[in-house]
C-alpha cells in the first residue's frame, strides 16, 4: 500500500495521499517556510497515484495560506492535469470552505480557472 501522511503543525496542513483510493487531502493552515520542500513528497506521490488510479480526487480544506503555497498547489494541480490528458482521465477537486467565506471561494475559483480541473465547492456550516 502506498500511503503518505504529513502531520499538521501550527503552520503547515495535514496531508494524506492514498494511492489505493486515489485521493490527496490537504487540510489546515498552509504557510510553510519553504513551500518547495513541503510539496516535494506530495509531488513524488502523484506518479504512484496515477499508476494505481486513473482519477485523482483532491480534498482541500484550507484555513489560510501564503502565496508560496498557492504557487506550489497550482503546480501540483497542473501536474495532475498533464497526467489526466495523457491517461484520458478527469481528476477532481473538492474545495471546502466555511459557510459564507467568499474570499476562500474566490481563491478556489481562481485555481479552477487556471487549471481547468473540475472543482466542486462545499460549504461547511459553522456552529
Amino acid at each position: 500500500m502506498e500511503y503518505l501522511k504529513i502531520e499538521k503543525t501550527d503552520f503547515t496542513p495535514e496531508v494524506t495521499v492514498d494511492c489505493d483510493k486515489g485521493t490527496i487531502s490537504i487540510v489546515g493552515i498552509c504557510i510553510p517556510e519553504d513551500a518547495v520542500v513541503f510539496f516535494e513528497p506530495i509531488i513524488q506521490k502523484v506518479d504512484c497515484l496515477m499508476q494505481n488510479k486513473r482519477q485523482i480526487i483532491f480534498d482541500i480544506y484550507l484555513e489560510y495560506f501564503n502565496t508560496g503555497f498557492s504557487k506550489n498547489l497550482l503546480a501540483l494541480f497542473m501536474k495532475v492535469v498533464e497526467l489526466d490528458s495523457n491517461e484520458n482521465s478527469k481528476s477532481k477537486v473538492i474545495w471546502k470552505l466555511e459557510e459564507g467565506d467568499d474570499e476562500l471561494r474566490e481563491s478556489g475559483e481562481l485555481f479552477e480557472e487556471i487549471s481547468k480541473l473540475d472543482f466542486e465547492f462545499v460549504e461547511i456550516p459553522q456552529h
Binding site: 510553510p32 517556510e33 519553504d34 513551500a35 518547495v36 520542500v37 513541503f38 510539496f39 502565496t67 508560496g68 503555497f69 498557492s70 504557487k71 506550489n72 497550482l74 503546480a75 481562481l110 487556471i114
Partner: peptide, 17 residues
C-alpha cells in the same frame, strides 16, 4: 494571474506574488 501561472519559483518556492 499572469504571475501565478508563469512566475518562476525562487529556491524557497516564492514567485513574487
Amino acid at each position: 494571474l499572469e504571475q501565478l501561472k508563469h512566475g518562476v519559483l525562487s529556491e524557497t518556492g516564492n514567485a513574487g506574488l
